[in-house]
Nucleic acid binder design. Structure first.
Lengths: 340, 340
DNA sequence: TTGTACGCGTTATCAG
DNA sequence: CTGATAACGCGTACAA
């Protein structure tokens, strides 16, 4: 219907009585342009409400000014933090963020690779578990598309990454429970396709082994990082005889579910059951009692990863891997076990 | 460094021994191509791993295949739902979603308009309060860029929209409390720049007026749709003498905060204080007790709005406004007031 | 300091 | 049914 043709660089040139190339120079802040000409061109641009055509620029520069963020149905809070960090770094830059949530990286590798190929991305941010996918990374590398990995757990050195130490963090969380006097500790694992789940389990087991505490298989329940999966897992744990006196959930969503499950059983947190989460997402302060959890600086990680990408886009060499510190946030969901 | 030139349409043409235009026809599923030629071209495309260059296509078709989603720091749960719905509809389509969170639409109108102009978006999804911004809509209309509005409250008829009835929903929520026997009801308002805040207040007042209950000004507290703002507001409300026996928060984040504030005061929910939320976001089931709330079909709304956009992009006429039904979800955060 | 010719990869037009 | 040619809007190389 309405197609008010946008002004082009030629229109501006005509109005300012210069050549198109000169306008181009002004637009791109190139040197060798008289101040007088510059202002004349700028006025014309304003008058015509001129904005460069991104498609045309992209065609000649082979740049799309698009950066993709690939992630896979993690908890909402994680996604939000991720986007916040990435967008914060992008503020003021020309690049825009395209969100690419995918069903299952491992199951539909081909489909996702095709998606990336046709999406014309200048760079890609890989969140777990996509950050562990070899085929994906190979494809990006072959295509000459810079990428940064967030919290990878395998194939380190295959690409710049930002991560925290999952093993050490889980260990610290478990030690906290041990120090409080817990000996029967239940674990709710995260999505098995996220390698972080195993890393966190390893850390937990190390802490318990050091303390001489056995972790019976029945005390390890499978979850998927979602509230519902956590609820089911927590119910199974609490149905055990005897039930654990503490539950270590591998993310906050599942920890919140553990609190809910406890309430269903008439149990008080932390008096009857201590609960530890992971991530320090918004949810950790929304529930009651507020969660003792591991602060995983997701937003900072995304910010740093995006920063790496921007540097690479400027032609600078790949940076190495960055490790960000975690922190045990002790709040009110943990306490010594009831003296029986 | 590495720049393995991608195959172009000409490469494919050469390999399949046809002209570039014929390849183009195959790519775009245009008629008038022999099956034999078609398969020959397809094979060449596969062999060369050919993917059309989006920038070049965009240049000739004046399309970017980018759809923007404009929103303003609302609660994380709202953003997630919004994106889910929009992306769900986009699945399988060529268009990609660019997220455009903005600081404050009203304060930085100019900046945002410039952003839109330079972003080369084919269409835009406006979430509140951007969906109420006249300047923004004028700009889009002038630019011939289709847009759809989510939950607008003013300037209706200025553009296709998807909404729910905030007044009726708030009324229903308040009636629920009245029916339970509450007469001293506190309200935590949302961000004043979101017109929904006023609409919901109006609905609440209508319900109370009908029941002959006075809503004292001291019972109306300001919030910003965030947990923290809700916490502060709820604390003020509970410090009143006498405190309200029920709190109606204008979204779930703030309702969750009200529960936390109640716990701080040693109050039990719902025995000592009933709490009603708004949105039925994830958070409503994560907290304890699970929130009685108004189910606002945010995901469906985003899906429908995106659907409208896609239709308009195909040249079909603008659709009218769509209303989606809300639903009062009665859960465990509300009960009759304690008999004094 | 400024301008000209050309090419980026694709599609539309209009012949053949 | 198929192909040659021009155009989309801009940047690069090279002149002037």
């Amino acid at each position: 219907m309405t197609r008010p043709k946008r002004a082009t660089i030629v229109d501006v040139a005509r109005m300012a009585e210069v050549s198109a190339k000169t306008v181009s120079r002004v637009v791109n802040n190139e040197p060798h342009v008289t101040e007088a000409v510059k202002t004349r061109v700028r006025e014309a641009m304003r008058a015509l409400r001129y904005h460069p055509n991104v498609a045309a620029q992209g065609l000649v520069r082979s740049r799309s000014y698009l950066i993709g963020l690939v992630y896979e149905k993690p908890s909402p809070s994680y996604v939000v933090e991720l986007q916040k960090g990435a967008l914060e770094r992008l503020h003021g830059e020309r690049f825009r963020l395209v969100v690419l949530p995918v069903e299952s990286v491992t199951e539909r590798e081909e489909e996702i690779i095709a998606l990336l190929r046709s999406a014309a991305l200048d760079a890609v941010l890989l969140a777990p578990p996509a950050s562990d996918n070899a085929a994906l990374m190979r494809e990006l590398r072959d295509g000459g598309i810079p990428f940064a990995r967030i919290s990878p757990t395998r194939l380190l050195g295959q690409g710049p990454s930002v991560a925290m130490d999952d093993v050490a963090a889980a260990q610290e969380a478990a030690e906290h429970l041990v120090t409080l006097g817990h000996t029967r500790i239940g674990v709710i694992k995260g999505d098995p396709s996220h390698a972080a789940s195993d890393a966190r389990l390893v850390g937990t087991m190390q802490a318990l082994a050091t303390a001489g505490i056995a972790l019976h298989p029945e005390l390890i329940e499978a979850g998927l990082f979602t509230f519902d999966s956590g609820l089911a897992a927590a119910r199974r744990l609490l149905a055990l005889d005897p039930p654990p006196s503490a539950i270590l959930a591998q993310n906050d969503d599942m920890a919140a579910a553990a609190i809910t499950a406890a309430r269903e059983c008439g149990l008080h947190v932390p008096e009857d059951l201590s609960v530890v989460g992971f991530d320090d997402s918004d949810i950790s302060r929304v529930v009651w009692p507020p969660l003792t959890t591991i602060r995983q600086p997701v937003q900072d990680m995304a910010y740093r990863a995006m920063d790496m990408l921007l540097h690479m886009l400027k032609g600078e060499p790949e940076q190495g891997d960055v490790h960000l510190a975690h922190e045990l946030m002790i709040r009110r969901s943990t306490a010594p076990p009831r003296a029986d």
